[in-house]
């Protein structure tokens, strides 16, 4: 199944069959991903819903030459998670009246998502090439540490390496990725 092609069909003519396939594949995974990162199931369900709603609305902005479908959907879910954490913080503050300064009370979304930056196409092929050359173990260690936020003990266990070397493995993997991208 080519996810990028399905997103293209949604963009081109609002293809609901294509969208359903995307929903069935990605919504439960976004939810699972968020639950695993410690979010409660209801909040995760809502973000998964909104992620797919955004996929529908912004399908035309997806450029298969610039990102993989899963990476693009991840960035949507990530931004929604940031927004929802922000809202929760604001509500908590509003409850604690004493902490609310008049200035902050009316503060709109001040940061217009600094993440929404375009990556140029020539960058993209370099990213893809670098990731291909990164060893399986190195991409795993980066993923476990930065994306899945696993404790070092767990990483050590899963990779079968001593706890003491986890940190240096992570550092080496990050340095290697940086070098590959600079090539």
């Amino acid at each position: 199944m080519e996810w990028a092609e399905l997103i293209g069909r949604v963009a081109a003519h609002g293809d609901r069959d294509a969208f359903k396939l995307l929903f069935e594949h990605f919504a439960p995974r976004v939810k699972g991903f968020l639950v695993k990162s410690g979010m409660n199931a209801d909040a995760a369900e809502e973000i998964a819903q909104n992620t797919l709603l955004t996929v529908w609305r912004k399908a035309a902005q997806f450029d298969p030459a610039s990102a993989g479908a899963a990476g693009w959907i991840f960035t949507i879910a990530r931004n929604l998670r940031i927004d929802s954490a922000r809202q929760a913080a604001r509500q908590a503050k509003a409850l604690d009246k004493a902490a609310v300064s008049a200035e902050r009370d009316e503060a709109p979304e001040a940061v217009d998502s600094p993440e929404t930056m375009m990556t140029r196409r020539d960058d993209v092929s370099r990213v893809a090439a670098a990731l291909q050359r990164l060893s399986e173990e190195q991409s795993t260690v980066i993923r476990m540490s930065f994306i899945e936020e696993q404790p070092h003990g767990e990483i050590a266990e899963r990779l079968g390496i001593p706890l003491g070397t986890v940190k240096s493995r992570i550092r080496l993997a990050m340095a290697r990725l940086k070098d590959l991208l600079d090539d």
């Binding site: 639950v35 990102a67 959907i73 991840f74 990213v127 990731l131 993923r143």
Partner: peptide, 21 residues
């Protein structure tokens, strides 16, 4: 930007492999 894009792609791969709920 390239480094960030690379991590986002790795995150996409993690999303693909997440246990569906």
């Amino acid at each position: 930007r390239r480094f960030i894009a690379a991590i986002e792609q790795l995150a996409g791969a993690a999303l693909e492999q997440a246990n569906p709920v």
